[in-house]
């Protein structure tokens, strides 16, 4: 798998570690802080917070042409890892290097301003997803995406009236409109109907063949099996498995069985 040259390397993660502070006495508001301060000021002042390891010494390389599926139970660190790659969260230790452009989406049923029309929201989404492009290039992407989404005249109706499936169509059409070196899709096919999901998967496959790599995060084994050619299983903030998809799926199923028995 790693026999390709370093020029094919798109993502290089080395010893990535990230932890979050856990507050044992979690307060939702200033009022709670105030009350607990009045009730027991010494406990309040001396209370310590611990840290929860979310990613522990993760090292990962992704090369051109790879469609990497990331799977794991809830809280395994899948989304956090993707957010680190997308520079939304910064690691405590380790490094992330992306050779080329990257684009990520973590929810496909999202609008910017629901009062505006689908087209106006698409314009804003395009500007956020493709910030480096010129106005003219954005217009081309917009025209292509609107056509691909097959939303017809609905595109000029208020976005707040769109169903989740229609929102997913628009977002997925936009994100897959232009190739990039690394595309990150985190649980994004869920809102789309079966017909459109197949259509978008085909479009993404075509994009990959003409550009870089994809990271797909999903809980759905079928999606991973049909879309990916490599699988990483995250468990307890570490990489438990990295290799062929079928083999990884069987490791994942075994892990799930063990977890269910332990409950």
């Amino acid at each position: 798998m790693n026999s390709t040259s370093t020029s094919d390397l798109i993502l290089d993660i080395k010893n990535l570690s990230l932890s979050f502070k856990i507050e044992y006495f979690k307060h939702d508001g200033l009022r709670d802080h105030f009350i607990s301060m009045l009730k027991n000021p010494i406990v309040k002042l001396l209370q310590k917070s611990d840290r929860l390891k979310v990613l522990d010494e993760i090292s990962l390389q992704v090369r051109k042409g790879e469609r990497l599926g990331i799977i794991g139970v809830n809280g395994a660190g899948k989304t956090t890892l993707c957010r680190c790659i997308n520079e939304m969260i910064y690691p405590d230790y380790g490094s992330i290097k992306v050779n080329g452009t990257k684009r990520a989406i973590f929810n496909s049923a999202i609008g910017i301003l629901p009062e505006l029309t689908g087209r106006e929201n698409a314009e804003l989404l395009a500007a956020i997803l493709y910030p480096e492009l010129s106005t003219r290039e954005l217009e081309e992407i917009l025209a292509d995406s609107i056509e691909f989404s097959e939303l017809g005249h609905f595109i000029d109706t208020p976005y707040k009236n769109f169903s989740k499936g229609m929102q997913a169509r628009l977002c997925l059409s936009l994100i897959s409109a232009k190739g990039c070196d690394l595309l990150i899709l985190d649980e994004v096919y869920d809102g789309a109907d079966e017909f459109f999901r197949r259509k978008i998967v085909d479009r993404i496959h075509r994009l990959i063949s003409s550009s870089g790599a994809v990271i797909l995060v999903s809980h759905n084994p079928e999606q991973i099996l049909s879309s990916c050619n490599r699988l990483v299983l995250l468990n307890n903030a570490k990489i438990e498995f990295d290799g062929a998809v079928e083999e990884g799926m069987s490791v994942y199923r075994n892990l799930m069985t063990v977890e269910r028995k332990s409950l």
Partner: peptide, 9 residues
């Protein structure tokens, strides 16, 4: 929140 969590913005 959903918007901020969905894209790098």
């Amino acid at each position: 929140a959903e918007l901020l969590k969905s894209f790098r913005l």
